[in-house]
Design a protein around this nucleic acid. Structure first.
Lengths: 221, 221
DNA sequence: GCCACTAAAATGTGATCACAAAATTTAAGA
DNA sequence: TCTTAAATTTTGTGATCACATTTTAGTGGC
């Protein structure tokens, strides 16, 4: 289970909750391709429970736009469009800038060290072309920063946006690898260390726009 | 049913969907007070269906933070805190500015006229101290503008944020009325008419911050 | 009158069932 | 071989049930 999205590593109180996090994790890890259809009974059998908790978990995920229901009521992994991508990009920029700004006053020695360590993990993953590791480390890096300001509402909005791009990201990674990805983490770290709001904003904006903006029309199907 | 939130006035394809919109509408119209507990069977009886669709609708609404589940698994209308309010405020500012900016290129004579008419309705409601009318007209005014840019993802994020403040808003309205509310719609309309991004942003920011910012600690319970 | 304790009612969760709609497979015809 | 149509299976939705937990009501004691 991805730490950044479930940092407390909690034991799930209900089956529905367990299923929700399992499916969410699978999406983040690129286990589902865009367009792929998901069936309630199939998931229930796979996760060893009745259809009931699956229904509620899927309803929750569609509500976050991590999945979508087709006009024939079938639950599918959404396909991306350029319009959607542009919107997600814009929303991520403004929300993650806000989260980072909110986090800045809480940056101390310890936090900075943790971020540097995570950045190192990202770089190692990039060098080794380890997609799985890169995705996890990158996620941890960003959310560790954002979480410093103890945001709740904004963070869940950001999580929803990451979930929406995850399937496409993995598609692109599998096709082109992770090597030529831009790395704005150094700028971001420097801005964070200095408490320079403007530098942080610029780094986040570039990180997002270069990462998602490079995906052109051809990759969308 | 609030037009701005369900502009197509669609016929609902499933019971679950009908229940979802009915409860959502009730929240927006202030039918539920913060802290109020909602029961599945109770709602099911009231809306004349089995508990099943209600469960899914409530799950969806809690996913949007319009409702929340207590630690004893009871679904309640969330109570507000200053921290949450500040976050919602910040998120609304950046997202609604983004939506408005995206809408500007689509503003034409017709749209401008529609907005003016809605603004008039808001002012009439304010003069007559008609809370119900004010809430509806204000909602329509903002979302009519935002919808021009045909946003999907950002719009649903904004909707979620409005839902979260609705119960508190109504509480404040009932206690203090709607008379002394700030009106930044004139500035906003002028900015929209001119295509002046900066003026629009400023008006939206002030509209949100003066509207929600005036709610101090005492009102929160 | 007020508080602790017990009993009864109500509630959320998960499982199962029925049914109509959709997807898939099979069969038939050209 | 390909297309179309019928038959079969699979699927989502809504209803109902069982059960453990929680909430509420009721009772007794001070």
């Amino acid at each position: 289970m991805t730490r950044a999205f479930n940092p407390t590593q909690e034991v799930f109180r209900t089956t529905q909750e367990r299923v929700y996090f399992q499916v969410r994790d699978a999406i983040l890890r690129g286990k589902f391709l865009p367009g792929h259809a998901i069936t309630i009974r199939g998931l229930a059998a796979e996760l060893d429970c009745s259809p009931m908790p699956v229904r509620e978990a899927l309803r929750r995920l569609t509500s976050e736009r991590a999945l979508e229901v087709s006009d024939t009521r079938r639950v599918t992994v959404p396909t991306m469009t350029l319009e959607k991508l542009a919107e997600i990009c814009a929303a991520r920029v403004v929300l993650e800038c806000q989260a980072a700004e909110q986090a800045l006053p809480f940056v101390d020695e310890e936090a900075l060290e943790a971020l540097c360590e995570l950045d190192t993990r990202v770089n190692i993953a990039l060098e080794e072309k380890d997609i799985e590791q890169y995705v996890t480390a990158n996620l941890d890096f960003h959310f560790t920063l954002y979480r410093l300001g103890r945001p709740h509402i904004i963070l869940s909005l950001i999580e929803s946006l990451w979930l929406q791009t995850a399937p496409l990201q993995h598609l692109v990674f599998q096709r082109f690898g992770v090597q030529e990805l831009p790395d704005r983490h150094k700028d971001l770290l420097m801005g964070v260390a200095r408490g320079d709001v403007e530098q942080v904003r610029r780094a986040i904006r570039q990180d997002i726009e270069e990462g998602l903006g490079s995906i052109s029309a051809e990759e969308l199907l």
